[in-house]
């Protein structure tokens, strides 16, 4: 195992991990604002990717317009989901909220399957494919663009939460709903905004994954389950944690894929994040940056 191989794995891990970070950010935003565990995050990602693909291939929309339309669509989808499904369940038991997102995931997956079938559909080449030489290893340009996109989006979200009025209002809602209400913040609006942001970042993640992989299929939905180790590692209510956790899990996944897979005969890449999840829950359940408020009963 030489150094180049390790470096290649690290770069792959970094890129995939950055997309995990992005999707995990959406997850954390929903959890922070509404304390709902969104297990349909992967399906939102898949819907975004398919909608963009549809626009690109069937309607020949130029790439940037296609992305814009996809994002608007995702934002509206997020709003609709919050209004129709999640709002009636405010204040109900945790298992209801978990189960409702599982039901939502089931619906979205079925709709995509009915509309597009189960086969892998090639994703049109958006970024130039010629690899760039970084040090000793060639890196696909798509990876670099994806990394840049994620960095830009995460930076934009960070600024939004720090300076924009709506962002500050969302943080206020997350920290104390009653106080936020009494300050004139519409908590319902914040919930809707959280879902809409989460749907948008998931859609971007889906599009990026589509371009990197060169094709999309139903397995994109599993990305939502990949996000769970990420958010547990980072701390469920920390956006910084989601970013750091995403990169760590991405790298961990690729390293175990590179070094453990030959030893066990495949499958280690898929399982490593979940083993990490269990270990983190056993030893540091609030994650790296999470608030330490777990009840021990």
């Amino acid at each position: 195992m030489d150094f180049t191989f390790l470096l290649q794995l690290l770069i792959n891990g970094l890129v995939v991990g950055s997309i995990y970070s992005l999707v995990a950010t959406g997850f954390v935003i929903i959890y922070k604002a509404t304390s709902a565990l969104n297990l349909a995050q992967g399906e939102l990602l898949m819907v975004g990717a398919y909608v963009c693909l549809d626009l690109l291939t069937k309607h020949n929309v130029p790439f940037f317009q296609a992305i814009l339309i996809t994002l608007v669509f995702s934002a509206l989808l997020g709003l609709a989901i919050e209004r129709v499904i999640l709002r009636p369940l405010i204040g109900s038991h945790l298992i209801s909220v978990i189960m409702v997102t599982l039901g939502l995931g089931s619906i979205l997956k079925a709709l995509v399957q009915i509309a597009y079938g189960t086969n892998t559909i090639p994703f049109p080449e958006v970024f130039p494919s010629a690899p760039v030489q970084i040090g000793p290893i060639p890196v696909s340009q798509g990876y670099l663009y994806a990394l840049a996109c994620v960095t830009f989006l995460v930076a934009a979200l960070t600024l939004f939460f720090k300076y924009a009025k709506a962002g500050v209002a969302m943080r206020a809602t997350a920290s104390n709903q009653q106080v936020a209400l009494s300050m004139g913040i519409s908590v319902k609006m914040m919930f809707a905004l959280a879902w809409s942001i989460a749907a948008v970042v998931s859609a971007v993640g889906g599009i990026l994954l589509g371009t990197i992989r060169g094709g999309i299929d139903m397995s994109l939905a599993f990305m939502g389950l990949k996000v769970l180790p990420v958010v547990i590692l980072g701390g469920l209510d920390s956006i910084l944690g989601a970013i750091v956790g995403g990169v760590i899990i991405g790298v961990l996944e690729n390293l175990s894929g590179g070094y453990l897979d030959p030893a066990v005969g495949g499958g280690a890449k898929e399982i490593a994040p979940y083993v990490a999840l269990i270990l983190i829950l056993m030893f540091k359940p609030y994650g790296l940056f999470g608030k330490r408020k777990i009840e021990r009963v």
Binding site: I85, P88, L89, S92, H93, S96, M99, V100, L102, G103, L104, G105, S106, I107, K109, A110, L111, Q113, I114
Partner: peptide, 23 residues
Amino acid sequence: TVFSSLKDLVFGILVIVFLIYEP
């Protein structure tokens, strides 16, 4: 051809409807 997806669709809708109207 869409039978298996149809099952998922109806399942999801039923779960949501039950959770909202008859928890």
